[in-house]
């Protein structure tokens, strides 16, 4: 990979300042960024490490909201959210492999918004709030397409707040080589209704499957969505699966998630 300047600020303010430089890029756990840089798909001139930024790591529960620092690793979320939000904990425990989970962070995943990443599905289905150094952004407004988010160039995901649903579950059909989601579905049942978020399937990135939500609001059972499948119109077709295959999986995985939700 090409060389770069490296800086390791200790405050969010200094990190944001460093990111305002031309060619600067934030570095979280680096589990996507390093492989991308090795392939020269990313060539940042300056890397701003967020590793030492204070106050960005940890899981805390207040009332019915679980707040996770942006620099918290998947492994820590898997452990620390297990009692309070088991659906989210299980999702974190299924990302990549153990070594990847020890480095990769929730903030990095959400900032990157890979169309096959797991966390975007949890954030969107939960109705989470993404907190940056500048503002709070509702998940419904945050995800703006494949690798696109509402973040501007000097914004850092400092925390993510998840309203804890009554029931939830995440089902991932893994792409056998990468272990990313070929399709992943997160179902969250809250007092305000059911939310279903789909990752891995669409060219537009993570999205809510509103037809299924409507059906599940009437009857929260697999039977209510028995004959439904996703809309293949704008779904991804690649070596691993056609748009029609993914659309089929969306229905199957949603039913499985409803059955498994707890």
């Amino acid at each position: 990979m090409y060389n770069f300047e490296f800086t390791k600020p200790t405050t969010v303010e200094d990190a944001a300042k460093a990111m305002s430089a031309e060619g600067a890029q934030a570095l979280g756990g680096g589990q996507t960024l390093l492989p991308t840089m090795k392939q020269r798909l990313a060539m940042p001139e300056i890397l701003v490490s967020l590793t030492d930024v204070e106050g960005m790591v940890g899981v805390s529960k207040a009332g019915t909201t679980l707040t996770i620092g942006g620099g918290t690793t998947h492994a820590q979320v898997a452990t620390d959210a297990a009692a309070s939000y088991p659906g989210l904990s299980a999702l974190a425990d299924g990302i990549g492999d153990p070594a990847v989970r020890n480095r990769g962070t929730i903030g990095g995943s959400l900032a990157n918004n890979d169309p096959a990443a797991c966390y975007p599905a949890a954030a969107l289905a939960s109705g989470a709030t993404i907190t940056t150094n500048k503002r709070d952004i509702l998940a419904d407004n945050y995800f703006q397409g494949m690798f696109e988010t509402a973040l501007d160039e000097t914004e850092i995901v400092t925390a993510v707040s998840f309203p804890i649903p009554e029931k939830s579950n995440y089902q991932k059909f893994v792409q056998p080589a990468s272990r990313f989601a070929l399709v992943g579905v997160f179902v969250a049942k809250t007092a305000d209704g059911v939310r279903v978020a789909v990752t891995g399937a669409s060219n537009g990135g993570v999205y809510r499957w509103t037809e299924a939500e409507t059906a599940l609001n009437g009857d929260f059972s697999a039977r209510a969505i028995e004959d439904m499948s996703g809309d293949a119109t704008d779904m991804i077709t690649d070596l691993h699966g056609s748009a029609e295959y993914r659309a089929h999986l969306v229905g199957v995985l949603t039913r499985r998630a409803v059955v498994a939700s707890s």
Binding site: F6, K8, L27, G30, Q31, L34, P35, L47, S49, T51, A75, P98, A99, V100, N102, R103
Partner: peptide, 12 residues
């Protein structure tokens, strides 16, 4: 913590 040492910069 177990990590993949090809996927962490030495400066980190």
């Amino acid at each position: 913590k177990a990590v993949k040492s090809c996927t962490i910069f030495a400066v980190e």
